[in-house]
């Protein structure tokens, strides 16, 4: 089965952890993830500047490793990311900002990517809230 997964919550929200565990279980079960779409507060999951206290799970780090190791299509909504200060080198240059905090394996793109993923996948599963 082909899954598209959309995440609307920040990495410190329990729903971000649920999305990650769901995605891991989907792959372990032999399913395919056509795209992970990070929207609204979910864009913070892709920031390289998240520092998690040592006694807590580093969910944004786990997301990065998961997307990288499984070679997944991790798309971050560009409009949601810019307004929250999550920029790659290109956007940081375009808007004359002092730093970039979004790097591989993430891609900044538009909401159309969520729409397309929903068309291509058999199931769209959204995670957000608490």
């Amino acid at each position: 089965m082909k899954f598209a997964i959309a995440l609307f919550s920040a990495p410190h929200a329990p729903s971000s952890r649920r999305a990650l565990r769901f995605a891991q279980a989907a792959l372990a079960g032999g399913h395919e993830i056509v795209r992970l779409f990070f929207y609204q507060e979910g864009v913070h999951s892709a920031s390289s500047n998240v520092v998690t206290p040592q006694d807590e799970l580093d969910i944004s780090g786990e997301w990065r490793d998961f997307v990288r190791e499984q070679r997944l299509d991790g798309v971050v909504c560009i409009a949601a990311a810019l307004r929250r200060g999550v920029l790659n080198a290109e956007e940081s240059q375009r808007y004359d900002r002092p730093a970039a905090n979004l790097d591989d394996p993430w891609a900044l793109s538009g909401l159309g990517q969520l729409h397309e993923a929903a068309q291509v996948a058999d199931r769209l599963v959204c995670f957000g809230g608490p």
Binding site: A25, A28, R123
Partner: peptide
């Protein structure tokens, strides 16, 4: 979680 995935299928 594997059960959650199974439900969504």
């Amino acid at each position: 979680y594997p059960g959650f995935v199974e439900l969504s299928c």
